[in-house]
Write a protein that binds this DNA or RNA. Structure first.
Lengths: 117, 117
DNA sequence: ATTTGCAGCTATGCAAGTGTAT
DNA sequence: AATACACTTGCATAGCTGCAA
C-alpha cells in the first residue's frame, strides 16, 4: 500500500513551480503532524485522508461563494472537523481539546454533521 | 536561514518526474526531522510568486487547521462575507438577500467582524 | 444604510450518566 | 479493579437570528 504516492501526485496539476511543491509538502506535513508523534512518513499519500483534504480545498475555492452563509458555514465546519479528527486518529477527546470544544459538544456536532459513522 | 533544504532544492533541476518529486519531498522531510525543532517551517522555499494568493487559500492551507473551531469559523465567515460584499458592491440589502440573511443580522455581523469601516 | 429591543431558536459548557475495552 | 476512551442526555446560559420599529 505505501509507496503509491504517485496516483496522488498524478492527480494534481503539476506546473513545476515551487509554490505548488510547497503546497504539496505543507499538506503532507500538516496531515502527518499527529500530536506528539515525531515519525514522519509518506505512507498515507493517496489515501482517503488526503482526498478529504483535497475536498476541503476545492470546496472553499469553488463552491463556497455560491452557498448561503449557513450552508457554507456547515460545509466548512464539516471539512474542518473531518481533518482535525484525522489528525488525532479519530480520538474525540484529543480533537475536542485541540479545537477548544467540550467532548459532548463535539459528539453532538459529529452527529449533526453526519460524521459519526 | 537558507538552510539545508534550500540549498538542496537549489542544487536540483526539476524535470517534472513524479518519482523525482517524491524523492525531493522525502529528502526535505528528513532534513526537517534532523532539525529537531518541533516547528516545521517551509520558509526556505518561499519565492516571490508564493506571496501571491487569495485570502481563502492562504487561510485554509496555513492557518485554519491550527485554530480553534471558533476562531477558524470566525476567520472563514470574515473572508466569506468580505468577498460577498465585494460581489455586490457593498450593498448590504443585496448581499444579505443572496447569503440568506436578514439585513439587520448582516449589519450586526459586519460590525462584530470589524468589516463595517 | 444603520441601529435596537425582543422573542425564539440554536449551540455550548457542565455535570452526570452508560457502555466497552484494555 | 482501574483507567481511558466513546457516546448520550438534561439543564442553564450564552449567542445568533428574524421581525418590527
Amino acid at each position: 500500500m505505501p509507496n503509491e504516492g504517485y496516483s496522488y501526485l498524478q492527480s494534481r496539476k503539476w506546473n513545476g513551480n515551487l509554490r505548488e511543491l510547497k503546497n504539496v509538502i505543507e499538506k503532507i506535513l500538516i496531515l502527518n503532524k499527529k500530536n506528539d508523534s515525531s515519525e514522519i512518513s509518506l505512507d498515507f499519500i493517496n489515501t482517503d485522508q488526503d482526498k478529504i483534504y483535497n475536498g476541503f480545498e476545492e470546496l472553499v475555492q469553488k463552491e463556497m461563494l455560491s452557498l448561503s452563509l449557513k450552508k457554507a458555514r456547515e460545509y466548512f465546519e464539516r471539512e474542518y472537523i473531518k481533518i482535525q479528527m484525522i489528525r488525532f486518529n479519530n480520538n474525540v477527546s484529543q480533537t475536542a481539546d485541540f479545537i477548544g470544544m467540550e467532548r459532548s459538544a463535539l459528539h453532538r456536532k459529529l452527529k449533526n454533521l453526519n460524521l459519526n459513522k
